[in-house]
Write a protein that binds this DNA or RNA. Structure first.
Lengths: 149, 149
DNA sequence: TAAAAATACTCCATAGGTATTTTAT
DNA sequence: ATAAAATACCTATGGAGTATTTTTA
């Protein structure tokens, strides 16, 4: 019972990096480790799973069928972990279920009111916080500084 | 760029264990580590994420909202990892896209032929391997020993 | 006051680095 | 002949254990 997985995320990250570049040296640089360290990570991962993830000679590296399948699941796993981090961080900041919108005279007079109505209908549980913003610079409004928060 | 996740699967496993029992000592036993080691794992995970995953005093432990959200994603991630391992192992064994069916006189004379036809139509790329099996015991047929392979 | 989590401190296992060897084009 | 992966060897970091302290119901 229980997830008796012996490897960890370093192994998975290493694997994804090699799968992406199909070149141990380049992948090792992307990971900021040395090539021997990377070789060992991949080897121990393969040993642990009990499957060759790459067909490799010293001259070329290709994903095996097992590797292709494992890669897809690794990517999904990372997506969930990333998402988990984001959600936890937002929840901790009390940001879940809240959208902050800054408006100025221009946008408030155009389509914003209608958009709000439509959105409120679709997502009634999401609080919308309106902020009137005179300046065009956003430095003083940390909520709007990031790209896609 | 790249997944700059500093924690690893041990942290996630530890977190899931505590989330399930809401008791550090019990969870540590389930994980075969000591309670202090587990406390440190959880703490470092929280530090890394930047969110409290549990509200805890020395007398009671409860999941925070951040924890609830993170838990769901962790479980999904583990599901994908488990699946990745299984798929890789099967691919390495050449078991992907192959179904082995053992038949005896009874089944071959009943519905099996029709089932095969229907299945072949639906899944033309899956090879079906038929094995005539006299005995009722399956020990000598490793392909049929497992439950849901 | 007692049950449970957090902290202090020590030690060792292992992850990673450097140097080298092997391999295939 | 050379580019690239694998192996050998060594070192140091950090993860786990034991012992203890802190906390709150």
């Amino acid at each position: 019972m229980g997830s008796n997985i012996r490897f960890d995320l370093r192994h998975m990250r290493a694997f994804v990096a090699v799968a992406e570049s199909l070149h141990f040296k380049k992948a090792s640089e992307a990971l900021f480790i040395t090539q021997p360290a990377l070789s060992r990570l991949i080897k121990s991962l393969e040993d642990e799973i009990g499957a060759e993830l790459f067909s490799r000679t010293t001259r070329q590296v290709t994903l095996s069928e097992a590797g292709r399948l494992f890669l897809a699941e690794c990517q999904q796993a990372f997506t969930h972990i990333q998402r988990g981090i984001q959600l936890a961080q937002r929840a901790a900041r009390g940001d879940i279920g809240r959208i902050a919108i800054a408006y100025n005279d221009f946008s408030i007079n155009s389509s914003l009111p209608h958009l709000l109505e439509v959105f409120k209908e679709a997502q009634p549980s999401v609080a919308i916080e309106l902020t009137y913003m005179l300046l065009t610079r956003t430095e003083n409004y940390p909520d709007f500084a990031g790209s896609a928060r």
